[in-house]
C-alpha cells in the first residue's frame, strides 16, 4: 500500500509517571486525531499504572537537532569546565560551600 491521506498520522507520546515528575517520552503510535491518540496512548502505555498524565504531539511537528552536528552543537559546553563547582579550589576548613 502506498502512502495516502488515509493513513493515520504518527504521534509521539509523553507520560508523567507521577505528580512532581516531568513528562517523559515513552514511544509513538498512530491515531486519526489527538483525542484518539490520547485514548490509544492510555491503552498501550499505561496499562500498569505507568502514568497519571499524557501528552501527545504529531511526530512531524518535532524539530530535532542533527546528530552529525553534535560536535559543534555541544562542544562549547564541554570546554567550559568553569561552569561546574568542581572547577574551583576551596581552602581546607571551609564548609557549607
Amino acid at each position: 500500500m502506498t502512502k495516502n491521506n488515509q493513513d493515520w498520522p504518527l504521534w509521539e507520546v509523553f507520560i508523567r509517571s507521577k505528580q512532581g515528575l516531568n513528562h517523559k517520552h515513552v514511544g509513538s503510535l498512530r491515531a486519526a486525531d489527538s483525542s484518539m491518540a490520547i485514548e490509544n496512548a492510555r491503552d498501550v502505555y499505561t496499562r500498569r499504572m505507568e502514568g497519571i498524565s499524557i501528552w501527545v504531539i504529531p511526530s512531524n511537528l518535532i524539530t530535532a537537532s542533527d546528530p552529525a552536528e553534535e560536535e559543534s552543537m555541544f562542544e562549547p559546553a564541554t570546554s567550559k569546565v568553569y561552569r561546574h563547582p568542581t572547577f574551583y579550589d576551596v581552602p581546607d576548613g571551609i564548609s557549607h560551600m
Binding site: 488515509q6 493513513d7 493515520w8 486519526a32 486525531d33
Partner: peptide, 9 residues
C-alpha cells in the same frame, strides 16, 4: 480506519 480519518478531517 477510513471512517476515523474522515471524521478527524
Amino acid at each position: 480506519i477510513e471512517a476515523a480519518m474522515a471524521f478527524a478531517n
